[in-house]
Write a protein that binds this DNA or RNA. Structure first.
Lengths: 362, 362
DNA sequence: TTGAAAGCGCTAACAT
DNA sequence: ATGTTAGCGCTTTCAA
């Protein structure tokens, strides 16, 4: 720990200049500029001495750190743990590794000031930034872009702001879900939307998608088959246990509807659907015997509940990996080619139904 | 992005040397060495120009990066997602922030070569390393220690190897669980252990703890009240869905025991307990009506299952934070004081019962 | 093919 | 109180 081995040490031992060591160690000029004998000796001594390039030093002169920042903005998700964002992070990690980049954790919990991202760029601590699950309405993103920072969002659901983004097709969520249910023979399908004061974009898009696809398919959806703020009577202020309230109320609503209700329901997220399950059972509504129920997110615990919950899954790991691929491409393409306001790349990822036991034929 | 502002730029603009800028910016010598007027001007110009210290440069000269590595070794947990480790990570994040350290993600998924940790130290990329949920039997940890690297483990369950570690009292898990059940009047308590070929240390300790505490309390535990490999008949090779097999088999065993079985069971982890729930219901065993059941880990989804699962929780966030506190203390205490084989610090964290609805009075 | 030298941007003695 | 200087360890022209 005390005496770290430097290039000079290696050079002295070999009896050459440190420039030669540098050339060899970096495999510069296609390994063609330094004599084979010398190369061998340098490599040998370097290994013997346990030489490792000093990171700070190299970054200083190269003006590159081969490090990517990762930032998860605070979100109103308030879901069950952090599994969602963390799954994206796994994809990010795998791809970074593949490209030989390191990851600097700028903010995981969402309670870190986004300005920190700007700082890390200004300090030349990172070459690029991955934004996980950003929702937009973030002026600091504009600031980043304006400064020409390399940023790519994984699972972005905000407005077009010139940001490269991997986006999940939240409207298609409802499409594939409804198609799944229709495929099981259901013609009467209801939707459980968010009852929040300011629902996140994901849930809004899913609800819009639901109304759209049912209309296209000619399925009638009376107002009382869409459970949201309207039916709840009051919008809910942000709080940790909102899904509990939403789920219980929705389930109660279904129990009350009885025979007049749909034969299948899609909840805007797993959590709400999962909470409904025991309440439905308690109310004498069998799932999937009397109604089919499905959620969205394909959370890990879907197989833990009874019955295991059919859900719509996201290619989260993929979105993370592809975001990094794109970011690295940008970084290695060299300094900002396009100075003006560019329009961001968008890659859309499709949802997939993961059928389990909570949905069945009518 | 092109022209980054350096100290020289600030100095030129102010009309002083860059040494003055450095002193001011770093608040060196207790802000007492530079004149107040000069100080103001420097600060003003620095702000105006948007000056930020170059990280590589500073690290190079300071020989400190104010960065902590985070590494999660691969583990046979194969549980439900990564919520467990990630929760520790949140604690690590919070504490790092508090101390003004950044976090470098060396390995999250457990499929990153541990040697990478050594490399990061050798490249002087990190000042210290946090090991999350390490199980020991890791020769590379010895290597790290031998080189005098600063390492602290959060939730360590391996043998004493001179590593500073935050450890969870896995034996006490069973103690508090049994006490909880006894408090509800249960005198006949069974245990569901791991059926794996090589069970992880956590589960082994929990089982040992169970046998010990029941003995101490004078509770009789006939062999068929401890479900493990013996009763299953075959040890299970590592696989993703082991908990499924364990849970189903255990539940089946309980159904078969009928009246001859205990009135309460403790499963070595939530996942197994959660899987048992529907099987028990299917077998006509009411929880908590006929038997009480509890798990360990207090996973997020415990409240999702029916009935919500009573469990034993860990102070995971705390363990993460305290690990960082200790690591930072070590780092800032200066270079390795103790050269010889030191004995690592151990801070033991107690478990807590988180009562929900799956346990009730006899 | 190899070496000398000039920085990268900052810090910390040491001078003034 | 402020400036000068000598590096930190590496990369990269440019000479030899």
């Amino acid at each position: 720990m005390t005496g770290h081995v430097t290039m000079k040490d290696v050079a002295r031992r070999v009896g050459c200049s440190s420039a030669v060591v540098s050339t060899v160690v970096n495999g510069a000029r296609g390994n063609t500029v330094v004599g084979a004998a010398m190369r061998e000796r340098v490599l040998g001594v370097a290994a013997e001495l346990g030489y490792r390039t000093n990171f700070a030093s190299r970054s200083l002169v190269r003006r590159r750190t081969r490090t990517l920042g990762v930032y998860i903005p605070s979100s109103p998700w308030a879901g069950l743990g952090y599994a969602y964002d963390d799954t994206i992070l796994r994809g990010v990690e795998a791809a970074s590794r593949k490209h030989g980049y390191d990851l600097l954790l700028i903010g995981l919990s969402g309670n870190q000031d986004p300005k920190t991202c700007l700082d890390k760029f200004a300090e030349r601590r990172i070459d690029g930034l991955i934004l996980i699950h950003a929702e937009g309405e973030t002026p600091w993103v504009g600031e980043l872009l304006a400064r020409g920072c390399n940023v790519v969002a994984a699972d972005y659901s905000g407005p077009e702001v010139g940001l490269d983004a991997m986006v999940f097709d939240n409207r298609a969520v409802s499409r594939v879900a409804v198609e799944h249910l229709a495929g099981l023979g259901h013609r009467q399908i209801g939707f459980i939307g968010s009852c929040r004061l300011s629902p996140n974009r994901d849930s809004v898009l899913r609800q819009q998608g639901f109304l759209q696809v049912t209309a296209e398919m000619g399925l009638e959806v009376p107002p009382e088959w869409v459970f949201d703020q309207r039916l709840l009577g009051r919008p809910l202020a942000p709080d940790a246990d909102l899904c509990q309230i939403e789920g219980r109320a929705a389930a109660q609503h279904i129990v009350t509807l009885g025979q007049r209700g749909p034969t299948a329901w899609l909840a805007y997220c797993d959590l709400v659907a999962g909470i409904m399950l025991p309440v439905l059972r308690g109310g004498g509504v069998a799932v999937p015997g009397q109604i089919s129920l499905m959620g969205v997110d394909d959370s890990d615990w879907c197989r833990m509940v009874d019955p295991p919950l059919t859900s719509v899954g996201h290619p989260l790991v993929d979105m993370g990996s592809r975001a990094v691929d794109q970011l690295v491409a940008r970084i290695e393409a060299g300094p900002t080619e396009t100075a003006g306001p560019r329009s961001g790349l968008r890659i859309v990822f499709p949802p997939t139904v993961v059928a389990k036991a909570s949905t069945a034929s009518v």
